[in-house]
Amino acid sequence: MSTSTTLINAPRKRTMGYGAAFNTCLGFLVLVILGAVLAPWIAPYAPDEIDFSAIWTSPGAGHLFGTDQLGRDIFSRVLFGARESLIGPLLLLALATVLGVLIGTLAAWHGGWVDTLLARITDVMFAFPGLLFVVLVIAVFGKGPATAILALALAYAPVIAKFTRSIALAELSRPYIDAYRIQGVSAPMICLRYLIPNMSPALLGYLVVLFGEGLMSLATLSFLGFGAQPPSSEWGLMVQEGQAGIIQGHLWPTLAPGLVIAAVVVAVNIVGVRLSDQLNVKKP
């Protein structure tokens, strides 16, 4: 095609600073991450500091988000809780990605029975409620944050594998892969050194979006009592612990961590979608 035609079809150049929504969300996420890292220094109280004289205080000067049924400062708990709430989905994704990318790449490269097996497993995973599967794993291995992460990673792996397979197939059809084969590069080497790095922009964008989902799922498990255990201030667990107060009209212990979960998930999704657009637009 002539360069002039390319000009006609080329979308308007996108820059990182595209859109106020993107900037706001990115700023918010940076704040959350900073809060998590700096929690011991910036939190006004220790997360487990019980103060029976200040039970169920409303948000105000002393306690930014108020206090819970034990008089613990909710703002401090949210800050400290950010650590477990954010690292959890990271670990879960890391595990699921290693598994999923390996399986997906293998299926795309090998085809045949490996591919069929993967298709069957993903079909079953899609048909079977994910949470139920996770609860089953937890029932076998016992509850706790580690099991919750492991179980969710197993549930996420097929999804990532399926995504990887589809982009790997597109990548494998490009002749540079054939060129490597003719140069005498072994199949595992082509996959590890060339194929996977070339897929990583598309993969990374997808993983960012999955991060939001992972955070939600982990919080859900903690809420149900399968994930983080007291006295942790993991956000899902905080929502669950705050429930008792709702009947008595104390909304903040539930609302604060709930809103933070929602805001982080929305922000991650907005940033993730933009980011994957960016990463995939880099072709001439």
Binding site: M1, S2, T3, S4, T5, I8
Partner: peptide, 18 residues
């Protein structure tokens, strides 16, 4: 040759440009 403006000319003849 490619990039010489052949297609662009034809498209411009139908006012097909951004």
């Amino acid at each position: 040759e490619s990039g010489s403006g052949k297609s662009t000319t034809v498209r411009a003849a139908l006012r097909l440009y951004p």
